[in-house]
Every structure is written in structure tokens, then in C-alpha cells.
Design a protein around this nucleic acid. Structure first.
Length: 261
DNA sequence: TCATTTGTTTCATG
DNA sequence: ACATGAAACAAATG
């Protein structure tokens, strides 16, 4: 299963996939093809033999696999990470770590560009603190969202993508949320009134929900979504404007200057 | 050929 | 001290 750039919805789809595949199966062996993506010594992962994954959790763009009450395997996918669950001999190309179960299936963590990372952690909360992650964008309540944005400065899109404020939103979805909210990505956060902040919150929830519902398959998402037209000069799907490209936080940013203000 | 792509980390600036 | 911003990195794609 290989999805696009893993932001919150993609990682949530991976988490759900893992919850339906790898849980409660005894690990027979672990093959490490790319030790460089491990943030701990490779022999520690060998100790997982004989154990099994018992639960899944997600926070922002991180996926947690519980081994026992104080051992978690943590996956971060970077730009091009993915996972697969399969039966058969050939491991997928770019496999970094492959878990084989006694029952016959295998579970591969794939990193096409080695940007992913695998961590071991004894506690989810502690891991989140260490990584300095804010609350998960999908779990976050409206009141909390408002107070977070009240404390921020700078461009609106940068604020949404700041993982230490809110965890899970990346380049594609921040653009989408602001497109649906009718707000310019470069608008200073301090110029927003509460009505606009509430609108962003509502659109953030609906965009994330819609994407997860469709397993992040762009082709199934609403026609008026920006993600179908991330090209300069494309016709806007919501008004008569056309899509502009600019750069914010070093990322290519697409928006419609006509209806986003 | 080389610009483009993205999330995180690291370093600089205010 | 803290937060914001910009650059660096990996490496595959067209």
C-alpha cells in the first residue's frame, strides 16, 4: 500500500491498515535492510522476535505500534515512506525492515528515499513531548484550536504546518484547508478574527475527514478540491479565478487570489 | 542536466 | 528565553 506524501490522513490510513493486518501475530524473524533509518541499535529490534504487535495509535504524522505496555515501535514516513502486508517470497523494493510472522504473512516498512525513521519508545506521551509535537489536528477541539492560533504570529499557512503547535498538517492539506476556508495562505495570523478561525477549524476537520474516508485517494475526493488543480494557471474550482503559485515556509503553495482573502 | 519535490532538523535572526 | 524563518538534507523523477 503506497500513498502520496504522508500527512495526517495518509498516516491514519496506514494505521488503520496495520490495525486490520499485523495485530496479535507472533513475530518469527526481522530482516533489516536499511539500518540507517533505525534510531536505535539494530539488535534491539531482533529482541522483538517471539512478541507481537498489540495495538495501534497515531499522533500527527507518527504511527505507534504497541508491543507491550512500555514498548512501542514508532514509524515516521518522511516524504516517501509506506508499508505493505503480504504473503510470498519477494520483499517490496526499498524495504527497510521486514517483519515475518509465524502465520506466514510479512510486514514491510518501505522507505523509497530513506527519509523515514523508526523509533523505539517506552511511552507515547513522552515521545510526543520529546518531539515537541502539539495536539493532533484531528483530535483537537475547537476551543483549543482558537487559543493556539491566538498565540501565533506570521503567515497563516506556516502556523497550520507548525508541528509544535498542531501535529499532522503538511503542505498539501494546509493549502486545501485554506482554499476551502477562503483565506489567503500568507495572511498574518494576528489579523484573523474568531469567526475566520472557527471557519478554518471546521474546514480542517472536514478536509481531514473527507480524505480519510476516501483512503486519501485524490480521484475520489470532491471536484472542488484544490488538490486536483495544483498547477499555476489552473481554473479555480470555486470561483472564476485562476490558481497562483507562491512560496511559503520554503514550500510551493497554491491558492486562488480571487476568493482567498 | 538540473530544478523540483516534502518533513524534519539545525542554525540564524529578531 | 522564545519564536519565527530560512537553509540543509535525502534521492528520485521528468
Amino acid at each position: 500500500m503506497r500513498l502520496k506524501m504522508p500527512e495526517l490522513p495518509e498516516v491514519e490510513v496506514y494505521r488503520s491498515y496495520l490495525a486490520h493486518t499485523v495485530l496479535h501475530k507472533k513475530i518469527k524473524s526481522v530482516d533489516i535492510y536499511k539500518p540507517e533509518i533505525l534510531t536505535f541499535s539494530p539488535d534491539k529490534i531482533a529482541k522483538l522476535k517471539g512478541k507481537s504487535f498489540e495495538d495501534t495509535h497515531r499522533h500527527g504524522k507518527y504511527c505507534f505500534l504497541k508491543i507491550s505496555s512500555n514498548v512501542y515501535l514508532v514509524l515516521h514516513f518522511g516524504m516517501t515512506g509506506s508499508i505493505d502486508y503480504y504473503r510470498g517470497e519477494d520483499d517490496p523494493s526499498y524495504s527497510a525492515v521486514v517483519f515475518s510472522f509465524y502465520e506466514g504473512h510479512k510486514f514491510s516498512v518501505i522507505t523509497k528515499r530513506k527519509l523515514g525513521k523508526i523509533y523505539l519508545s517506552s511511552d507515547i506521551k513522552e515521545f510526543i513531548e520529546q518531539k515537541n509535537l502539539g495536539p493532533d489536528a484531528y483530535e483537537l477541539g475547537k476551543k483549543e484550536f482558537i487559543s493556539i492560533l491566538h498565540g501565533k504570529k506570521g503567515k497563516l499557512k506556516s502556523a497550520l504546518m507548525d508541528q509544535s503547535s498542531i501535529a499532522g498538517i503538511g503542505n498539501i492539506y494546509s493549502d486545501e484547508i485554506l482554499y476551502q476556508s477562503n483565506l489567503r495562505p500568507d495572511k498574518p495570523v494576528e489579523n484573523l478574527d474568531d469567526k475566520a478561525i472557527r471557519r478554518i477549524y471546521a474546514k480542517m476537520q472536514s478536509v481531514l475527514k473527507t480524505s480519510i474516508k476516501h483512503k486519501t485517494d485524490f480521484d475520489k475526493m470532491p471536484r472542488n478540491y484544490l488538490l486536483h488543480r495544483r498547477k499555476p494557471g489552473s481554473a479555480c474550482g470555486k470561483c472564476r479565478g485562476s490558481i497562483d503559485k507562491t512560496e511559503i515556509s520554503g514550500r510551493s503553495t497554491y491558492y486562488c487570489p480571487q476568493h482567498q482573502r
